[in-house]
Amino acid sequence: MAKFILKRILYMLVVLFCVITLTFFLVHSIPGDPITSMVQDLPIETRDLYLQKYGFDQPLIVQYVKFIQQLLTGDLGQSLRYPGRQVVDIVANYAPVSGIIGGIALAIGFAVGILLGIIAALNRNRWPDRLVMVLALLGTTIPTFVFAAVLQYVFTVTVPLFPTTGWGTWGHLVLPVACMCVGPLASYARYMRSSVLDITNQDFILTAEAKGVSSFRIVSRHIFRNSFLPCITMICTSIAGIFSGSFIIESIFAIPGLGKYFISAINDRDYSVVLGLNIIFTGTYILSILVCDILLAIIDPRIRIAEEN
């Protein structure tokens, strides 16, 4: 198992390096630069002076090497737009906000989605199934911003229960979380339903039935575990996404999260922030895939044994 994890970590580092390189060149290939996007009509001399100060006048490859050197010392750099603001601090300030909303939304979406999926599958072609599937279809097809607008209207104008926008109290959490959990909830419900139906038709369920095992135990011991496996892969990739936040939700509800910050950093050509955030997003993403692999190996003996050989 240790060898398996070590190998995975090595792969992760390679992927991380590739992503860093790719984003570096992609970000620099966007027309414009941080100085021009901040102040449009700067005298050429002053502008060149600034570019020189940050080293943007040098060839890209030199900048790249310098960037990597800086990274290796563990320094993600500071914002160009807001000098003095460290990328690490930005993450520390904004990521928890995105993380709380995304985490709660994902947890609710996952738990309820899985439950609804099982209920739908066990009542296949009866009304609970049809109801869940119709709702799931709506959930996957209606865009979040439509939900957000409807919820805002209903719960702040018609029935003023929650604040429209902002951040700070538990009440501020409700609407954004509700909007964000709809999508995952719907897709988990659909996914789990088909997974359960697939397992239900397997021969070993018939074996269990022939053993006289009760239907409750067939569901809990034989169907659930086996149909849950593919869902683990799904949740792991979603977990990675929660810290990067949702630009749409954070904009609509005026929430100071990373998603919003990330988009404005791109607009500002704030190279170091974009790169720094991207490194952190990529890092959490591959880390959660690693966790997912380990989790799957623990749950699914077939993977475990294959890795050992």
């Binding site: 397997q202 021969d203 070993f204 018939l206 074996t207 269990a208 022939a210 053993k211 011991r221 034989h222 575990r225 086996n226 496996l229 749950i299 699914d300 003996p301 077939r302």
Partner: peptide, 15 residues
């Protein structure tokens, strides 16, 4: 009790 045709799929793979 009963035994089935395909022993490959008649046992629960995760048990």
């Amino acid at each position: 009790s009963m035994i089935f045709q395909d022993s490959m799929t008649s046992l629960n793979p995760t048990m």
